[in-house]
Amino acid sequence: MNWKRVCAASDVPENTLKRFDIDGIAIVIANYGAGFQGFPPYCPHMEEPLADSGMLDGGILTCSKHLWQWDLRTGEKVGLAEKPLLCYDIKTEGDDVMADLEIELINEYDVEDDMDDDDFFGSD
């Protein structure tokens, strides 16, 4: 465990998201009303920056590009989402929002086909 203070609870008003960079780890803190959730800054689908494009309502986070959704109380996928949202362990101590940043959570994406394409057009 490596608990770090990320922000003050008042830094992230209800139903909003905010990105923080703590010791080189980027984390988005979401205030879903009943509590806080923390996750890596990009949508697990196609790297959309969730602090910019995410919408939060009633505990449901929606990425506005392709409408993948997650229930922030559990991190589980809802609706069109095909992958879960990786979440950090979060707790509040007094007015501080804390996250366990022992290991940085990183989404895996389909990589561009990395085959050498120099001979795309063939030799003829």
């Binding site: 990009y42 689908h45 196609m46 920056p49 910019d52 590009k65």
Partner: peptide
């Protein structure tokens, strides 16, 4: 590199 209004980063 950044996200576009209708699309994602890197596309």
């Amino acid at each position: 590199a950044p996200a576009q209004p209708s699309g994602n980063p890197k596309h």
